[in-house]
């Protein structure tokens, strides 16, 4: 074999392997989605959205868990987003030349990947122990801590994408900087910032670990935020590991619900980015 033919053969093999690697990633994604559809669709019924979590052996649904998940996700997003946006604003608008900004950025990136179960332990220590009981507030707080770094990151990225000319134009008109930020830059970067919030919601919608020690779970309907509250991820965890077939079926139904909500959020978030005026 000539050197040239050998090099070409090596090239073909390497590229085949890279194709194979990509294919295996995609195949696994579709396998997971397929199992979810196969096992989850039979569990979808009106009961799922009308009844509360049942004792084993009787009919029921997940409405209390769905309600709890929605409530805690909403509270966490409402609490975490402003903190994230303001921190992101500091990094993007006032960070240049400050010694604080690189440190905050560094710590934020670490929080972004920090194990969520440790966040749960932290909230257990600072909220559950002093209050003396598990509560949906504690669950929301844990989720909010997970929201913050996601929003900080996207806010900073999106604000820095806003053209300098826009800022200069506003400043030249005599607007004070806070007005420039709020009325011009936020408006220009709104779609991007919304993307960040949606990605954050997608991230916390399926988080289980931080809720285990904070919101715990509740067998019954409860709308009291100051008490343990059912939520989809923890119910899935409990039901999937149970030996009862009907509980396992409900777990698959819940898994299907969560996954498709999250995939839809992700896809909308990506569409928002590609529609935004300053996308990369």
């Amino acid at each position: 074999m000539t050197v040239y033919a050998r090099r070409r053969a090596t090239n073909a093999v390497i590229l085949m392997l890279s194709l194979l690697a990509t294919a295996s990633g995609l195949v696994i994604l579709f396998l997971i989605l397929w199992s979810l559809l196969k096992n989850g669709v039979p569990a979808l019924s009106t009961d799922l959205f009308a009844k509360t979590t049942p004792p084993p052996g009787s009919n029921g649904g997940l409405i209390n868990a769905i309600y709890g998940s929605v409530m805690m996700t909403v509270c966490a997003t409402l609490a975490g987003t402003p903190i994230g946006v303001l921190t992101g604003t500091f990094l993007a608008e006032y960070g240049r030349g400050s010694r604080l900004a690189p440190v905050v950025r560094f710590v934020n990136d670490i929080l972004l990947s920090a194990p969520s179960i440790v966040i749960g332990l932290f909230v257990y220590q600072v909220m559950v122990v002093p209050m003396g009981h598990f509560s949906a507030w504690a669950g929301s707080a844990a989720l909010a801590i997970i929201v913050i770094p996601v929003v900080v990151r996207t806010t900073e990225d999106m604000l820095t994408l806003v053209p300098v000319g826009l800022r200069e134009a506003a400043i030249a008109l005599g607007a004070p900087q806070w007005k420039v930020v709020i009325k011009v830059i936020y408006r220009a970067a709104l779609q991007g910032m919304l993307t960040g919030v949606m990605l954050a919601i997608a991230r916390i919608a399926g988080e289980t670990a931080p809720l285990l020690f904070t919101a715990l779970n509740n067998q019954f309907w409860s709308s009291n935020m100051n008490a343990p509250m059912a939520n989809l991820p923890v119910v899935i965890f409990q039901f999937a590991l149970s030996p009862y077939a009907d509980w396992q079926r409900l777990a698959w139904g819940g898994a299907l619900l969560i996954t498709f909500t999250i995939l839809v959020l992700n896809i909308i978030a990506r569409l928002l980015v590609s529609w935004s005026s300053f996308s990369r």
Partner: peptide, 18 residues
């Protein structure tokens, strides 16, 4: 490929187990 990262941990768990 990035959607693989969006799937929550618990879904990987239930898929892995069953």
């Amino acid at each position: 490929i990035e959607l693989l990262a969006a799937i929550p941990s618990i879904i990987y768990g239930i898929w892995g187990l069953f």
